[in-house]
Design a protein around this nucleic acid. Sequence first.
DNA 1: GCGATGATTTGATCTGGGTCAATTTTGCGG
DNA 2: CCGCAAAATTGACCCAGATCAAATCATCGC
Lengths: 249, 249
Amino acid sequence: MSNATASSIAPDEGAEPPVCATCAVRNSSLCSALSPDEIADLNRMSRRKHLSPGQVHVFEGDAARDFANVIQGVAKLMRGAEDGRQQIVGLLLPSDFIGGPMGPGDGQALEPYTIEAVSDLELCIFPRDGFEALLGVYPALERKLLDRTLSELQLARDWMVLLGRKTARERVATFLLHVARKMRNHGCQGGGGFDLPLGRGDIADHIGLTIETVSRQITQLRKEGILQMRGARHVLYCDMDALQKASGF
Amino acid sequence: MSNATASSIAPDEGAEPPVCATCAVRNSSLCSALSPDEIADLNRMSRRKHLSPGQVHVFEGDAARDFANVIQGVAKLMRGAEDGRQQIVGLLLPSDFIGGPMGPGDGQALEPYTIEAVSDLELCIFPRDGFEALLGVYPALERKLLDRTLSELQLARDWMVLLGRKTARERVATFLLHVARKMRNHGCQGGGGFDLPLGRGDIADHIGLTIETVSRQITQLRKEGILQMRGARHVLYCDMDALQKASGF
DNA sequence: GCGATGATTTGATCTGGGTCAATTTTGCGG
DNA sequence: CCGCAAAATTGACCCAGATCAAATCATCGC
């Protein structure tokens, strides 16, 4: 089921001046839709926030007060029951956007999921109202947000296929394939290897299995030579074709 | 696993003049974002298409040539492997919009899922280019599409929780609850009852179980008095509170 | 109304992955 | 380098739900 470790709430929200011009995700995040001039508006309303591993950014059910960009680190988006069962519905990597349904929908919007830092995490926060206003003013921004949301939707639906119909082996292979691609996009690599952003427990909560089953499947893939690792977190090499074949459909 | 019945491709695409003014979903679909004047643009480029139960609108992997609105009937959005396993990733009801990622993303967009009519189905089709152009011209339309997409994303993630962590009983209860709400919104009711839009096999493919397990769980709920039905498809009465309780989290 | 055909229900049995319980690794702080 | 707590692996056994196999039940053309 995974770790029920009581994760602490994030305390201070640093006050370093967020200078968009030097931002690490200036050109890959939503902000890439804005010109240097335009981004000044955003700069004015944004602030930085740092979270340590295990700290929670927002809890499921909280009033949704703002949006954010992930600048650095990895976070998990999750939902859980009191009895310990929990499901990770998405991972957040640098340049990903955080923000639920907007418009004047049901009056007061609530955070649909808990967002918890997996590694050291750096966020760029925008107040909800201000950001929504910007969307109206800069169409390119809204278009980019729409594109991203549609991609997320497709990803979520692909994950539904994994959770609904794949075997344990297929799930683990799919996950590894998915992470290998994501991590490589984000440059965190050098050669064929990469680090797993999640521990066994979190992987299990993401692909709908238990820690033990995830471990056994990884061991199996290793025995077959499809995977080579050093320690439990670092992948030295993986046979993408074989993984693809093992991942089902 | 469900029915592997070879579903036929939809033949003719009727040519009745689509008069938006009298459209059944004029005020509930995306189109509600447009004024009577504005909607004329859309009217000009749209055409109707009728599908019978079992016919396929688009196949997963086809080139994505257009968008559409569901005017009447129910369709399923699905993805499957050759071996018969398949997952229904969403249902389409009247006023729902059909359209994958847009923007000049990866050059040629492909349909991510197969869309098959479950009942008699009436669609209003727009060519891709024309519709995308309209999005640029009418911001309210784009905003509405964004809102809908965000809601769909949240729905998909909630379904991930169901598929990843819920028991058979919880899944069936969640599904019934979900359908009861949806069907009632769409007026297809009179009193407390409603019709199930899917047969046992499709329900199974939607909630990640087998036909037999779905059947057994429904029988169980019936024995407990939480559910009363006439035939296999019509719900006479259901205890929403009890279902809520049975649906887990 | 009368078969017939496909959908649903029910029963018997099997099994993939969960659960419980030890080990063994890994990564640190000192 | 040592010791220790947390994470991962491995093993033994169990069970929810899958699979296989018959009955029933609807529905519909005639």
